[in-house]
Design a binder for these strands. Structure first.
Length: 759
DNA sequence: AAAAAAT
């Protein structure tokens, strides 16, 4: 039957005569269903004939021809779908639909190739209708005398109206009565899904058969970072201008670490008995070469710092996988930072490590290199079962870590995936299904994916908590412990932060075994290239001074306490002529990416952020950090100020304090280890001028500049409001990243932003 | 207060 339906048979042929007959006999199924329903105890009582039923009272009309609508000739209409043949959704019988437009003739909008339109009625419409009504039968006299008088008196002949619904059948929501059998969702009759790749053709790494790679960064990372460092003074490798190095351990390192491991239980992850993995076949030199660029630029800054170690003490001497060392060497990176030199050997040995190194000192590689080195043991992650997890507090930091590790993951023949909110679920789930060795995640989305069973952590051997003290905060702790509880006990744990303190004790007690602590610094500001000013100001000057400090030629990060504050300060700056934009968790991810991208590429000089940007985020050449609202504590002070003076650069930190905040700021400066007592300041202060600050123009930043830099690119370029006629241009598609850019939607973020900001 | 998931 499906066939004749589709082949364009006339509609009336849908029913065979057998079906008609079947439909006619017996009560409709719907009625059966109703009376059978337990709740439908009442039976359907026929409505008593109403005297007022005028139909029966009126005389038969004779002046009109009988209507040809005698319904008795047709079968009762049945809505019971079970009596009709099942509809077929089997598409296999139809020709595959083609979306390939190349198979169709080009659409023509050229009107010339159509027949001219004809306004000559005769050619296809026949005779014009005649509106002369004289030839119609006379209208009946409108005297009403020939009808019985109308009776409006209800009491006389109709009886009281019944509003008693009980005598009607109860409405049935029972599916059976008119929808037919429930659809079958039993998938057991399908072949099991196979993850066995052996039945697929061998994978080809021949790039020529792949589509050209897209380097369009717009999709979610914003424009490319500017790497022109020509404006900086040449770097000096002259060791004479530095203080002599001390090899006296006693002066700052305490007793030597104990290397006798005989008292420890054997390690769970000893892989020596497994075959070495052959990565050669999978490494694509071409791809590596192309990625080398990106990577050097992304990480060199955090690698070559002021500390130069002798060559044999470089990365090669730390015991890392050759591949990693070679990869680093190819970019001229041979010298580890102190935090890296300190933690890598222990991390490689499989120990749990607590690492504290000042901001911008290369902590990402400190945990990343040994982690990747240890994963290259011939094991392969099963689908949805990553072997390593890096947990970070913000989406931006997660992206940064993912980007920084990517080339290293690649040379090791491993796979990694970023799992964070605001990004597409499907790409993350698909990657997990293919198998991921290293998962870089924010807690919320990871927990979500665990609950959806898109990932499970039972195979995690190495877990890293970046910004560990922050992850141990009240707000994060429940999710973090829930995630750690998913992993097998005894796996390696690496906890890193610039301000690692007793806050992580609960995590250490609950999840670490015999951790080794490496502090290349105390949790105080020991970045010597950083200058601090705490300015005691009058509230009325706050706006002016903020604009003055921000109005400089270099990159400036402005920190505020709240999301609304960030929006407000950014707006006020733009009104005064300083191009600034807000970055906070209330924005959708697309906007967050665009703002940070614009700040990184230099098209946005001033970033006004909440503490979302306080930790870990690396942007080159931020020369001033301005804290319009003081930080909550000395740790936040250190992290915020750590956005400047990275990897040996110079930087200035200016903190504005209102009179009532003076004492708090004094204490905080002490705890943070900076010697900057609050001093009074007014607009025009010379300390501000020293950072390059000048009074702003007062001419608002033009709206279209703001839009050009910060607004999402228009999709397809068509005006909104739908298609207004005329041929549609080719669909532009937009950057492929739209899937990951939820900027247009009404996501929960928005709602929770307005909700939470009121409170 | 902010951050971290949105169905």
């Amino acid at each position: 039957m499906p066939k004749n339906l589709r082949s364009g048979a006339p509609k009336k042929a849908r029913w065979t005569s057998d079906q008609k007959a079947a439909a006619k006999k017996g009560p409709k199924k719907a009625h059966r269903g109703q009376s059978a329903a337990p709740s439908a105890g009442k039976t359907y009582a026929a409505r008593p004939a109403r005297d007022g039923d005028r139909r029966s009272e009126r005389p038969e009309r004779t002046d009109r021809p009988a209507r040809g609508y005698d319904r008795s000739e047709r079968p009762a209409r049945s809505y019971d779908r079970s009596e009709r043949p099942a509809r077929s959704y089997d598409r296999s019988e139809r020709p595959a639909r083609s979306y390939d437009r190349s198979e169709r003739p080009a659409r023509s909008y050229d009107r010339d190739d159509r027949a001219p339109r004809r306004f000559d009625r005769d050619d296809n419409r026949g005779q014009r209708r005649d509106f002369n009504r004289d030839d119609r039968p006379q209208r009946r006299e409108s005297t009403r005398d020939d009808r019985p008088a109308r009776r409006s008196d209800r009491s006389e002949n109709r009886g009281p109206r019944q509003y008693n619904r009980e005598d009607r059948p109860v409405t049935s929501f029972n599916r059976d009565d008119n929808r037919g059998p429930r659809r079958e969702f039993d998938r057991s009759d399908r072949p099991a899904r196979s993850y066995d790749r052996s039945d697929r053709p061998a994978r080809s790494f021949d790039r020529s058969d792949r589509p050209a790679r897209s380097y369009d960064r717009d999709d979610n990372r914003g424009p490319r970072r500017e790497f022109d460092r020509s404006d900086r003074p040449a770097r000096s490798y002259d060791r004479n201008d530095r203080p002599a190095r001390s090899y006296d351990r006693d002066d700052n390192r305490g007793p030597r670490r104990e290397f006798d491991r005989s008292d420890r239980p054997a390690r769970r992850f000893d892989r020596d008995d497994r075959p070495a993995r052959g990565f050669d076949a999978q490494v694509d030199p071409e791809a590596e070469r192309m990625e080398a660029d990106t990577w050097v630029k992304a990480t060199r800054k955090s690698i070559d710092g002021p500390v130069i170690v002798e060559a044999d003490n470089g990365f090669a001497g730390l015991g890392l996988a050759d591949r990693l060392v070679e990869r680093l060497a190819r970019d001229g990176i041979t010298t580890p930072f102190p935090i890296q030199a300190a933690t890598i050997p222990d991390a490689l040995a499989g120990k749990d490590v607590l690492g504290r190194g000042q901001t911008g000192s290369g902590k990402t590689l400190a945990f990343g290199l040994p982690m990747l080195s240890r994963l290259a043991d011939g094991q392969k992650s099963a689908p949805r079962r990553p072997r390593a997890l890096v947990l970070v507090p913000t989406r931006e930091l997660a992206m940064q870590v993912s980007d920084a590790l990517e080339p290293l993951v690649h040379v090791m023949g491993l796979r990694h995936k970023l799992v964070a909110g605001g990004l597409s679920y499907t790409t993350q789930i698909n990657a997990l299904n293919r198998g991921v060795d290293v998962l870089i995640a924010t807690p919320g989305r990871l927990k979500d994916l665990i609950e959806r069973e898109a990932v499970q952590l039972q195979a995690v051997e190495i877990a890293v908590l970046d910004e560990a003290d922050h992850m141990a905060d009240m707000g994060f702790m429940p999710e973090v412990t829930a995630i750690l509880d998913e992993m097998p006990a005894g796996g390696q744990r690496l906890l890193f932060s610039a301000t690692l303190d007793k806050g992580v004790d609960k995590l250490v007690e609950g999840y670490l075994t015999d951790p080794v602590t490496h502090s290349t610094d105390d949790a105080k500001a020991s970045v010597t290239t950083m200058e601090h000013h705490v300015l005691l100001i009058d509230p009325m000057h706050k706006k002016t001074i903020t604009a003055e400090v921000a109005n400089r030629s270099g990159r400036t990060v402005v920190f505020v306490r709240t999301k609304l504050g960030a929006d407000r300060v950014a707006l006020q700056l733009r009104e005064q002529g300083v191009f600034a934009a807000a970055l906070h968790g209330g924005l959708n991810q697309g906007a967050r990416n665009r703002v940070l991208g614009a700040f990184r590429d230099g098209s946005l000089p001033v970033l006004v952020a909440t503490d979302v940007a306080a930790r870990g985020i690396h942007v080159d050449d931020v020369s001033v950090v301005l804290q319009v609202d003081p930080p909550a504590d000395h740790k936040d002070y250190l992290h915020r100020s750590g956005r400047t003076a990275r990897a040996g650069d110079k930087g200035t930190v200016v903190t504005l304090a209102l009179p009532h905040q003076r004492r708090t700021m004094e204490r905080m400066a002490r705890e943070a280890g900076i010697d900057a007592m609050p001093t009074k300041a007014v607009p025009g202060d010379e300390r501000l001028a020293a950072t390059g600050a000048v009074a702003p123009s007062g001419v608002p930043v033009p709206e279209d500049q703001v839009r050009r830099v910060l607004e999402a690119p228009k999709r397809g370029g068509r005006p909104s409001g739908g298609h207004r006629g005329g041929p549609r241009g080719p669909r532009q598609g937009g950057p492929r990243s739209y899937r990951d850019d939820r900027s247009g939607g009404s996501r929960g973020d928005r709602a929770s932003y307005s909700r939470s900001s009121r409170g």
